[in-house]
Computed example of a mutant assay.
Amino acid sequence: MSTVNTVTEQLTRAGQAIEHDSFAIIDAEAGAHGYTPAQWPIVRRMIHANADFDFNGLTWFHPDAVDAGIRAMMAGATPIVADVEMICSGLSQPRLAHFGMATHQFISDPDVIEAAQRADTTRAVQAMRKAHRRGLLDNAIVGIGNAPTALIELVRLIREEGVRPALVVGMPVGFVSAAESKDLMAQVDDVPWIVIRGRKGGSTLVVAALHALLALAEARQKAGA
């Protein structure tokens, strides 16, 4: 049986060769690292997305993160809630469809904008609250790559309102509260997370991490077939 993930990897031999050669170069240049065999494919794909080896070290994992993400994907129809549309647009629709998954984001909804103006908060805060009101956060995969306030609000919802996502991929980029928001998430014990420590991050990195998890989920699915 082929080990190539037909849904979650390049679909042509030429594309597969380029991608696999890129990963081989990353493996060689990264050298020794402290990640587990399950964690490294995620970090490697993040490096591949940005050609930035700093993510080898800046990326932190809750002990249950990879397994929780894979199990959530394999469960089928698990929602992905994002802070911005860029994450939803960046995720491959065939890859999501393979596991019956759909994406959700509310950052530009009129009621979210109105609530943010009324409460003098950010749209990202109100978007997370709307996702919670709609029952989308529990058992979901939450991807945050742009708005630190979304991650801060999600931590509050976890601590104060008992929200329980299956996995949080918290990678907001920026200079105001970005590092602090990820430090807060890394202090959560009872919800699995993947974070990038410090200022670096971005929606591209969230997409890369989720695509890596989709590939791992398909590989586990094939192994159990």
Rank of each mutant, 00 (worst) to 15 (best):
E114M: 10
G143F: 09
T6M: 09
A97F: 07
L216R: 09
L137T: 11
A147T: 06
C88L: 00
G145P: 11
W193L: 02
F99C: 08
D138Y: 14
F99M: 02
A116K: 11
A38P: 04
F99Q: 08
R123S: 15
R44E: 11
P110C: 03
M86R: 04
V188G: 02
V168K: 09
D120N: 13
L167A: 06
A82Y: 08
I194C: 00
V7L: 05
P94H: 06
T121A: 10
H211S: 06
G15M: 07
A208I: 04
S89M: 00
Q221Y: 05
L58E: 10
E218D: 10
Q39D: 01
G76N: 12
L96V: 09
Q126N: 06
N5Q: 10
A186C: 02
A30H: 03
H33S: 05
T204A: 14
Q10R: 15
E9K: 02
S177L: 15
D109S: 13
W193G: 05
I194M: 04
Q221V: 05
A49R: 11
D83T: 11
A127M: 12
R129T: 08
K200E: 00
N50V: 13
L210P: 03
R95S: 14
A77G: 02
H132W: 07
G202W: 02
A17E: 15
E85W: 02
W60I: 04
D189E: 10
T36N: 03
M101A: 07
P63I: 14
T8V: 00
N50Q: 11
L184P: 01
G31D: 04
H20Q: 11
H62A: 04
W40R: 04
R129F: 01
E9N: 02
R45D: 08
A225D: 15
P94G: 02
